[in-house]
C-alpha cells in the first residue's frame, strides 16, 4: 500500500468514520423528509395535530445521530495513537459499515412507516401511542447496527 502514502491506515479509518456519518445522515434526511412531507400535508389542514406528529417525524432522525456517534467514537479511539497501520485502518473501516448501511436503509424505511403511521393518527387520534410502535420497530435494526459497530471498533487493538 506504499502508493497510498505512509498514512494510508489513518485514511482508511477516517473513511470509515466519514461513511458512518454520511450514510446514516443520508438515510435520516430521506426518512425525515418523507415523514415531514406527510406531516406538512396533515398540518396544513389540521395544525392541532403538531404535537402528535412531531415525534413520528423525528424518529427517522436517529440513524444520523448513530452515524455521528460512530464517527466521533473513531476520532476518540484515534486520539493519541501515533501510527495507524493499514491493517488497523481496514479493520476500523469495516467496523463502521453496520451503522452506516443499516442507518441508510432503516432511515428511509422508517420514514415511510412514520408517514404511514401519521395517517392512522388522522383517522384515530386516540391511537397515537399504537401508531408510534410501528416505526419504532424499524428503529431496532438501526440500534443493532450501532451496537455492532461500537463492539467491532472496540476490538481493534493499537
Amino acid at each position: 500500500m506504499e502508493w497510498l502514502g505512509i498514512n494510508a491506515g489513518l485514511g482508511l479509518a477516517i473513511l470509515g468514520a466519514a461513511l458512518a456519518v454520511f450514510l446514516g445522515g443520508t438515510g435520516s434526511s430521506i426518512g425525515v423528509g418523507i415523514a415531514g412531507q406527510t406531516s406538512a400535508g396533515i398540518m396544513s389542514e389540521d395544525p392541532e395535530k403538531f404535537g402528535k406528529l412531531l415525534l413520528l417525524q423525528a424518529l427517522p432522525g436517529t440513524q444520523g445521530v448513530y452515524g455521528l456517534l460512530i464517527g466521533f467514537w473513531i476520532l476518540i479511539r484515534l486520539t493519541g495513537v501515533e501510527v495507524v497501520t493499514v491493517d488497523q485502518g481496514w479493520q476500523l473501516l469495516f467496523a463502521c459499515l453496520p451503522a452506516a448501511i443499516n442507518g441508510l436503509m432503516s432511515g428511509i424505511w422508517q420514514g415511510k412507516v412514520s408517514a404511514a403511521a401519521m395517517n392512522i393518527i388522522v383517522k384515530h387520534p386516540d391511537a397515537s401511542g399504537k401508531a408510534l410502535i410501528l416505526p419504532a420497530m424499524v428503529e431496532t435494526y438501526a440500534i443493532f447496527g450501532l451496537l455492532a459497530s461500537l463492539l467491532l471498533t472496540n476490538r481493534v487493538v493499537f
Binding site: 406527510t38 400535508g41 396544513s44 408517514a115 383517522k123
Partner: peptide, 22 residues
C-alpha cells in the same frame, strides 16, 4: 435502493387523510 417515486405524493396523501374526515 431506489427511493420509490411514490413518496412524491407524501404531502398530498397526508393532506387527503384530513380532508377525508370531512
Amino acid at each position: 435502493m431506489s427511493i420509490s417515486h411514490d413518496s412524491r405524493y407524501a404531502y398530498a396523501v397526508g393532506r387527503i387523510r384530513v380532508l377525508e374526515t370531512r
